[in-house]
Computed example of a mutant assay.
Amino acid sequence: MVLEHYISELLYRYNCVVIPGFGAFLTQSRSAIIHKDTHTLYPPAKTVSFNQQLISNDGLLVSYAAEAQKTTFEAMLKQVEEEVVDWKLRLQKGERLQLADIGEVWSGTEGKIQFQPSGKTNYLTASYGMSSFVAAPVAREVLKEEVAALEEKTPIAFTPEKREAVAARPYLKYAAVVLLALTTGFTGFQFYKAEQNNQQVVREEAHKQVSKRIQEATFFDTEPLELPTITLKTTKKASTDKAGRKTHHIIAGAFRYRTNADKKIEQLKELGFHPSYIGTNPFGLHMVAYDSFIDAQQALQALHKIKRTQKDAWLKSVR
C-alpha cells in the first residue's frame, strides 16, 4: 500500500493528517513572496511540516484509504499499522524515507524524526495553476545614470540660427501654418460628428429601456415582493352563465407570480372594486380582474368608468 499517496490527497483538503502511531503532517498557508536576489515571484502556497507528538488516530486517514480501496475500517487500520512499523524499522537502520510529493523523513539525534518538505507540490487549492516566474527588474534608474554619463562625455552643441535661410523661404512657414489649421479643423469636425452619433445611440438605447420598463410595470411583476404569507379562500367564478352567454372581465393586470396577483386583489378591494382571480393566460401569467359581468353593455360602461383613473384596464370576453 502506498500510504503517502492518500496523505498527499488529504493535505489538499485538511491542515492536519495524522498517521496513527507515527506522527502528523501539518500545513500552514503563506502569502506570495518575491526572492530579492533572483527576482523570482512565488504564488501563495501551503507549507508542510511534521509533528512527531501527534500520534492519536483521528480516523481521517484510515477512513479515506478504506473508502478508496473498498475495504473495512478495521482492515485498513491493520494495514496502516503494518506500514508504520516498516517505516520505523527503516528509520532505525538509518534510511531516509522518500514520501512522494510530501518530502523526506529521517531519524536525527536522540531518535527524533526530522522532515524536509519537497516544495514541488502546492497544496493550496486557491493557487491551482499558478507557478513561480522571474520578473525582470525595472531599469529606470540605470538608464538615467547612463544618460547622465553620456551627456558628460558628449555635450550637445547649439549653433546660431541661420536667419537668412529662413528668410529665403518664408512660404514654408506659412504653408505649415495653413496645413496645421486645416488638420485641426478636420479633426474637430470628425470629433463633433462622432460625438453626435454617440449621443444619438445613447438616446435610442434610453428610449428602448424606458419602453421596456413601462411594459414590465404594466403587465408583469418580475420579482415577488417580500410580503407576509396570506391564505385566501377563494372560488373561481364560472366563465359562463346558465344560458351559455359570454362572461366579460375588466383586466387589472397579469402577474408572473400568484403572490403578486393576490396582493393586487387586496389593493383593489381597498379601492372599492370587486376584483377576482380568473386563472392564467396562455403565457402562464396570473390574471386579475377589476370586476366581471354577464352583460356586455354593463361591462363596457364599467370599463369606461374605470379607465378614467386606471389607464391600463382592458376588456376580456370568455365563452
Rank of each mutant, 00 (worst) to 15 (best):
Val2Cys: 14
Glu4Thr: 09
His5Gly: 08
Asn15Trp: 04
Cys16Val: 11
Val17His: 00
Gly23Met: 01
Ala24Asn: 03
Leu26Ile: 03
Gln28Thr: 07
Ser29Leu: 12
Ser29Gln: 11
Ser29Trp: 14
Lys36Glu: 12
Asp37Leu: 15
Thr40Met: 10
Pro43Lys: 05
Pro44Thr: 08
Ser49Pro: 05
Ser56Gln: 05
Leu60Val: 01
Val62Glu: 09
Ser63Ala: 13
Ser63Trp: 07
Ala66Thr: 00
Ala66Arg: 01
Lys70Gln: 15
Phe73Asp: 10
Ala75Phe: 08
Met76His: 02
Leu77Cys: 12
Leu77Thr: 11
Val80Asp: 05
Val80Glu: 01
Asp86Ser: 11
Asp86Glu: 13
Trp87Asp: 02
Leu89Glu: 15
Glu95Lys: 14
Gln98Met: 11
Leu99Trp: 15
Val105Gly: 00
Trp106Ala: 09
Gly108Ser: 04
Glu110Thr: 12
Lys112Asp: 00
Ile113His: 10
Ile113Asn: 08
Gln114Trp: 10
Phe115Asp: 02
Pro117Lys: 02
Pro117Tyr: 03
Gly119Leu: 03
Thr125Met: 15
Ala126Tyr: 07
Ser131Val: 08
Phe133His: 14
Ala135His: 15
Val138Gln: 07
Ala139Met: 12
Glu146Asp: 15
Glu146Ser: 11
Glu151Asn: 15
Glu152Asn: 12
Glu152Cys: 03
Ala157Gly: 02
Glu161Val: 07
Glu161Lys: 02
Arg163His: 12
Ala168His: 05
Arg169Met: 09
Val177Ala: 12
Leu182Glu: 08
Thr183Phe: 12
Thr187Met: 10
Phe189Pro: 02
Lys193Glu: 02
Ala194Pro: 11
Asn197Cys: 00
Asn198Asp: 04
Gln199His: 12
Gln199Gly: 03
Gln200Tyr: 07
Gln200His: 09
Ala206Asn: 06
Ser211Phe: 09
Glu216Ala: 07
Thr218Asp: 06
Pro224Cys: 09
Thr229Ser: 07
Thr231Asp: 13
Thr234Arg: 12
Thr234Ser: 09
Thr235Asn: 10
Thr240Arg: 13
Gly244Tyr: 03
Gly244Glu: 01
Gly244Lys: 01
Gly244Pro: 07
His248Met: 02
His249Gly: 12
Ile250Asn: 03
Arg256Lys: 15
Tyr257Asn: 05
Arg258Lys: 10
Thr259Ala: 11
Asn260Gly: 11
Ala261Gly: 05
Lys263Ile: 04
Ile265Gly: 03
Gln267Tyr: 11
Lys269His: 01
Glu270Pro: 01
Glu270Gln: 13
Gly272Ser: 06
Gly272His: 09
Phe273Glu: 01
Pro275Thr: 08
Tyr277Phe: 08
Asn281Val: 02
Phe283His: 09
Met287Gln: 02
Asp291Pro: 01
Ser292Ile: 06
Phe293His: 14
Ile294Pro: 08
Gln301Thr: 05
Ala302Asn: 15
Leu303Asn: 05
His304Trp: 06
Lys305Ser: 06
Lys307Arg: 13
Lys311Val: 14
Lys316Asn: 13
Lys316Pro: 06
Val318Gln: 05
Val318His: 04
Arg319His: 14
